[in-house]
């Protein structure tokens, strides 16, 4: 199979890679670019652990082909903190014990950040529905919802 060259922007950095036509963005990120923060929990868009931003919208990177990102802007969990300064969501997730095993955490943080960009003051119900595609098996979601709300309040006050 002939590989296809792709030029894209990942976390603000110009990036070039070669991939097969049928390779998902998730596989490209993990296997070719060493960005393993996005996880494969299902590979079929049912768990959200592979969530990334594609041109400003949160998507499952397992449901995007690598070749589709030609000329696109991709943001992953690796680009969320600013150097050593964590994004408020990241910091509050630690403070509020909103993670246990942590495998769903990168996807949930990406999805939560996209929610707060669109709706800085969501209700609990809105947070729950926005995150319905991000499965977490450890926490029962309770502390996740509370952490998102606490971070949202901080971000509104900032």
């Amino acid at each position: 199979m002939k590989m296809i060259p792709v030029e894209t922007t990942i976390n603000g950095d110009q990036t070039e890679f070669l991939c097969n036509a049928d390779e998902s963005l998730l596989d490209v990120l993990r296997d070719r670019l060493g960005l393993t923060g996005a996880k494969e929990g299902c590979g079929t868009g049912d768990c959200g652990a592979c969530s990334v931003m594609l041109n400003g919208r949160v998507v499952c990177s397992c449901l995007v082909l690598g070749v589709e990102t030609q000329g696109a802007e991709v943001e992953t969990i690796e680009g969320m903190a600013d150097g050593e300064t964590l994004h408020p969501l990241q910091r509050v997730f630690i403070e509020e014990a909103a993670l246990q095993c942590g495998i769903c955490t990168p996807g949930i943080l990406i999805a939560a950040k996209s929610l707060l960009a669109k709706n800085p003051d969501p209700t609990d119900t809105e947070v729950r529905y926005w995150l319905a595609g991000n499965l977490c098996r450890c926490t029962g979601y309770d502390k996740i919802i509370k952490a998102v709300q606490k971070a949202a309040a901080e971000m509104r006050a900032a």
């Binding site: 393993t36 923060g37 996005a38 992953t76 969320m80 903190a81 910091r91 630690i94 942590g102």
Partner: peptide
């Protein structure tokens, strides 16, 4: 915590 919120934590497939 920091490793898990920044995507650095290394799991089985990482």
């Amino acid at each position: 915590g920091i490793d898990k919120v920044t995507g650095k934590a290394a799991y089985g497939a990482d």
